[in-house]
Design a protein around this nucleic acid. Structure first.
Lengths: 205, 205
DNA sequence: AGTACAATAGCCCCTTTGGGCTATAGCTGG
DNA sequence: CCAGCTATAGCCCAAAGGGGCTATTGTACT
């Protein structure tokens, strides 16, 4: 049995959602709330396997709701429900901790499948959103390295761990002065004045 | 018409892939290469809309191939093909710049649909991988902030921009000594000894 | 009233860092 | 062979950072 709670402020949709879920014998609705405010405590006290949240609600958005309760119920998975397939908020909800979503107007079967996919470790979502999510992971092309040499990259990478010149020189088996020199050269190339700036510049490409 | 190139070192699969694609009238195969090495120049000189790459190949992996050519052919989309649905490499390929993948053993129809979905701006992938990708976007729950005060967070955020104590004190309109004090307190809370360590610790939670 | 803590700010002292400059050895490409 | 580049390493000096301590003010909870 998969326990499910629903948070949805439109009465009609809330009811039809509940009905679609009830008909599947593997699902067990343990809570239905008409507002985020009312849901927030109940979700924490009685965490479902899956919480179905409307993204846009009058009082608190589903996204905020996730942010507020997720830490306390780490085993609950969040399935958003949205009116618009490609809502920008869907993307934000996924970032906040949701694992998938369904579109309002889906058939009972589609809803059930989404829940099962979610419970199974999947992430029901549209191809468009999927692409958007993975695009965020794409490293920018042509790292180019700003023309830094291999050794300089090595030093930079150790710097990024918070090591001192001395510690770096020990690891690379060179003099601390040399490490210093590499840093100076790195700073010149990147047009910066200190470690943090260098790391920022480099890591943002 | 969608132009397509194929890079695949197993002859049998290469041929069956080509056949599955040819039968669709909207697809136009403009290159078929049995190794990454041979493909690399051709892809750059004659970039297809979609490049289908085997993830594991004898000489260079499909992932490395993407890294090497992506910068030069930004309009080409990469569709990986893999033997194992949940291969760790699939995930790495997506990070490198691929936009989706197909599993070896898919039917011609499945292959065609994946290509169309990709061309359409989607990202064909299994639910498991989708989840993995979006999980990476989840902010860690309960930022908790390590018990840092509001002011300390403010200072930390300015530190992360590479500013000096003096610059921070100017912006916050307090004394540089106070900024220093905040830093000292931050370091104590986070159990670190310097800026870079503090930023690392904080940003990785 | 008393305790606790955040934010402010100063002091001292030493270490680390950053910038300038020089120098040598090795390697590479005209 | 020479010019250019990298990696190495040293020197000097000044600025920035980090750790220890104390102190005042204000707010908040008890």
């Amino acid at each position: 049995m998969i326990s499910i709670s629903i948070v949805e402020d439109h009465e009609n949709y809330r009811k039809s959602l509940a009905k679609a879920i009830e008909t599947h014998e593997q699902f067990n609705i343990i809570g239905v709330y008409p507002s985020a405010e009312e849901a927030i405590n109940e979700l924490v006290n009685n965490p479902p396997d899956i919480a179905i949240l409307d993204i846009k609600m009058k009082d608190i958005s589903g996204i905020e709701l996730i942010e507020q309760v997720r830490a306390q119920i780490p085993d609950t998975q969040f399935l958003m429900c949205t009116s618009f397939q490609n809502d920008e908020n869907v993307f934000n909800a996924l970032k906040a901790g949701a694992s998938g979503y369904i579109v309002k107007g889906s058939t009972a079967l589609e809803i059930q499948n989404a829940i099962l996919e979610l419970y199974d470790g999947g992430s029901p979502m549209s191809p468009y959103i999927a692409r958007k999510v993975i695009s965020m992971h794409h490293k920018q092309p042509a790292p180019s390295n700003f023309g830094l040499s291999q050794r300089e990259l090595e030093v930079l990478s150790l710097l990024s761990k918070g090591l001192l010149y001395k510690e770096i020189s020990d690891q690379l088996d060179i003099s601390p002065n040399t490490v210093k020199n590499h840093c100076k050269n790195i700073y010149k190339r990147l047009h910066v004045q200190n470690k943090v700036e260098a790391l920022n510049k480099f890591n943002s490409f």
